[in-house]
C-alpha cells in the first residue's frame, strides 16, 4: 500500500521556491511574468518524485486523473507542448523523433521509449495528457475558457492541498475557489481579480505565482483521505514538528494554449522540513515571523490550524537556542 510518509524533500536549496518576501503574509495578487517560459525542470528529486506520482496515479486513477471525453484534441496539444519543451531544454535527457504522425519519445533518465501515432490515443498506454504528464513531476490542470470563466476539464493531480481532481472536475474557477475568505489588504475579491487576470494571458507569455502551505507528515491532503490525515494533524508536537512539518511550496505557472485557448496550470510542489530552514537563516527568520502572524481564518482555510501553534513553538525554541548560542559566542 502506498505510504504517505514523506521520503523526499528539496535538497538543492537553490531550486526551492521560497515563498516569503516580508515578515508577514496576506493574500495578494502576486502574479508576475515567467522568465524561463519552459515548464520542464529536472531537480535532484526528479526520479523519486515522478515515481511517487506514477504510483499514486496507478493506485488511485479515479482520484488522481480526470478528463472529459471531448478533450482529446487538447490532450494532444498538451503532449506536443511538453515533449517539445523537454527536448529543447534537456536534449541529453529527452528525445522526440517525428516521422510524419509516427512519433517516438525517449526519456533517458527513466530509460523509457514509446512509439505512438500522434492523434491516435489507442497507440498509447494512457490518455495522451496522462501519458505525457507521467514524465514530469508537476501536477497539470487544464481549464477551458468559456465566456468569462474557466472550467476544469482535465486534471492530473498527485500533490493536492485541499483539492481533488475527482471532485473539482467540471467546476468553474469561481466554484473551485468559493466560498472562501479571500480578500486583499484593501478588501478586494482576489479570486475575481485573478480570474480576470487569467482571461488576459496571451499564448507564449506565461505567468507565475507562489502558493504555500504547511503539511503534517504528508505530501498531499485531498478530500478522499480526510478521515486519515485530519486526526494525524493533532499528533504534531513542538518536539517532532521540525521533522514532520514541511513548508510546502507550490510554484504555479499559467500558460495560454495557442490552439484550444485553454489555460494550463502547472503546479511544481516542493517540500522543506521546518528543521531545514536553519540552512538559510533568512528563510528561518521570515518563516518564523510569518507563521506567528497568520490570522485564524487563514489558518483554518489552509488546514494548518491544528498544528500551527506547535510549529511556531518549535521555531521559537530553535530561535531561542540560536540566540543563546550567538550570545555565548559573543561573550566567549
Amino acid at each position: 500500500m502506498f505510504t504517505q510518509e514523506l521520503d523526499f524533500k528539496t535538497t538543492d536549496l537553490n531550486t526551492f521556491p521560497f515563498p516569503f518576501r516580508s515578515d508577514n503574509y496576506r493574500y495578494s495578487n502576486d502574479l508576475r511574468k515567467l522568465e524561463d517560459t519552459n515548464l520542464v525542470t529536472i531537480t535532484p528529486e526528479y526520479e523519486l518524485q515522478v515515481r511517487a506520482k506514477r504510483r499514486l496515479l496507478d493506485e488511485q486513477p479515479e482520484v488522481r486523473y480526470q478528463s472529459f471525453p471531448h478533450t482529446m484534441e487538447m490532450q494532444w496539444e498538451f503532449l506536443e507542448m511538453v515533449f517539445e519543451m523537454a527536448v529543447e531544454k534537456y536534449p541529453q535527457h529527452f528525445e522526440l523523433i517525428k516521422n510524419g504522425d509516427e512519433w517516438t519519445f525517449k526519456n533517458n533518465i527513466l530509460k523509457e521509449e514509446q512509439t505512438f501515432t500522434f492523434g491516435d490515443p489507442s497507440t498509447l498506454p494512457y490518455e495522451p495528457y496522462d501519458f505525457a504528464g507521467r514524465h514530469f513531476h508537476q501536477d497539470f490542470v487544464l481549464m477551458v475558457n468559456r465566456e468569462d470563466n474557466f472550467y476544469l476539464e482535465i486534471g492530473q493531480v498527485s500533490y493536492a492541498a485541499l483539492f481533488s481532481a475527482h471532485w473539482n472536475t467540471g467546476m468553474s474557477f469561481d466554484e473551485i475557489h468559493g466560498p472562501v475568505p479571500f480578500v486583499s489588504r484593501n478588501g478586494d475579491n482576489l479570486i475575481d481579480r485573478v480570474r480576470k487576470f487569467l482571461l488576459g494571458i496571451n499564448p507564449g507569455e506565461p505567468w507565475t505565482r507562489i502558493n504555500w502551505n504547511l503539511m503534517a507528515n504528508r505530501w498531499d491532503v485531498n478530500y478522499e483521505t480526510m478521515d486519515v490525515w485530519e486526526p494525524q494533524r493533532s499528533l504534531i508536537t513542538p518536539e517532532n514538528a521540525g521533522k514532520l512539518v514541511r513548508l510546502r511550496v507550490e510554484e504555479q505557472k499559467f500558460y495560454r494554449m495557442s490552439r484550444s485557448n485553454a489555460i494550463l496550470f502547472v503546479l511544481n510542489t516542493q517540500f522543506l522540513p521546518l528543521e531545514d530552514l536553519q540552512l538559510r537563516q533568512e528563510w528561518f527568520d521570515l518563516t518564523y515571523s510569518v507563521l506567528q502572524d497568520i490570522p485564524e481564518a487563514m489558518a483554518e482555510y489552509k488546514g494548518i490550524a491544528p498544528y500551527l501553534p506547535q510549529s511556531v513553538e518549535y521555531l521559537r525554541r530553535v530561535d531561542e537556542k540560536l540566540k543563546n548560542q550567538a550570545l555565548q559566542t559573543q561573550e566567549g
Binding site: W167, T169, G170, M171, Y223, E224, M226, D227, E230, P231
Partner: peptide
Amino acid sequence: YSKVRKGYIGYPFV
C-alpha cells in the same frame, strides 16, 4: 455542490 457529481461534497471523517 458539484453539477458533475450531482451532490454536496461529503468529507469522510472518523
